[in-house]
Design a protein around this nucleic acid. Structure first.
Lengths: 146, 146
DNA sequence: CCAACCTACAACCAACGGGTTGTAGGTTGT
DNA sequence: ACAACCTACAACCCGTTGGTTGTAGGTTGG
């Protein structure tokens, strides 16, 4: 079970897609909190909060360190920034000119598998944009004209 | 059934938390595509892709315009940037400053919606939780010292 | 030692999410 | 007119998730 980039992106955004988890993340970004200290903030069982912490931990957004009987959790801002990077890459697609993606989309067979796009992660910028793609008659947005 | 900010954040990140949807988003950010044109890219039923498009649409990341018999979908980069803003706000929490209101005033996100500076966080506590922590006087990391 | 904590984890449940098929209606080209 | 498309949506299947309770084990303080 190789953790690919898309797996990580799934885990990242999934972890962020819950308001309780986002709130926990705010707390642990502001400072270390034990799990039970976190749990006191929410109208929820301890185990429930524990699960949310586990989801955040699995996404890498939070790390736990054991001190005595308590597990102190603190947020990892670098992983947060990686989420930011993913969004920026999407925005770059909008800005156009990422011919690498287009080339891969045209080459790789979406007929056998829909998902193995490790493509977008590498910030390799081969900017040769010939969009003579056969079935794509749509215009990519031209930033110079807007 | 008021759509609050947290609701939108939930929908946003949930929409982004699926690789097929992220891929569709890449396509429609690059240019308009009909739903059936999108569906041809994936090893999945048309209705399946249609559902993914609906999720993206509900999150505001994509808008559809009807032309004849086809529904042309195109990505909305502004909503994408609003996701970026949400992450930046979390990062600002880490920085220690509560500059969220400033960020709201500067960058007009959710410009068509009611985003009050109040922004009641959620469950029952707003995030002032570092004030009354009994033993944790851990300051958030000071950016000037790193 | 014992009680009070803090954590981990399993089992269970309702609800949701991703996927399918099927049906129906609007649009287009010949 | 009619077949071929394109879309919308309902119904269904089943794995996952968000929540619960319960149990067990390690830590701490009196």
């Amino acid at each position: 079970m190789i953790e690919t980039d898309e797996d990580r992106a799934d885990a990242l955004f999934h972890a962020l897609a819950d308001r309780t988890r986002r709130d926990i993340l705010r707390l642990v970004l502001a400072g270390e909190h034990s799990v039970s200290a976190l749990a006191k903030h929410y109208d929820m069982s301890f185990a429930g909060v524990q699960k949310h912490v586990a989801v955040l931990e699995r996404a890498g957004l939070l790390t736990k360190r054991r001190q005595g009987r308590e597990a102190l959790a603190s947020g990892d801002v670098q992983v947060l920034r990686s989420a930011n990077t993913l969004l920026s890459e999407l925005e770059n697609v909008w800005r156009g000119r990422i011919a690498r993606i287009d080339a891969l989309l045209d080459q790789t067979m979406w007929s056998d598998q829909a998902m193995q796009p490790d493509q977008t992660m590498q910030p390799d910028q081969t900017m040769q944009s010939d969009h003579n793609r056969p079935h794509d008659h749509n215009r990519p947005p031209d930033p110079t004209k807007e």
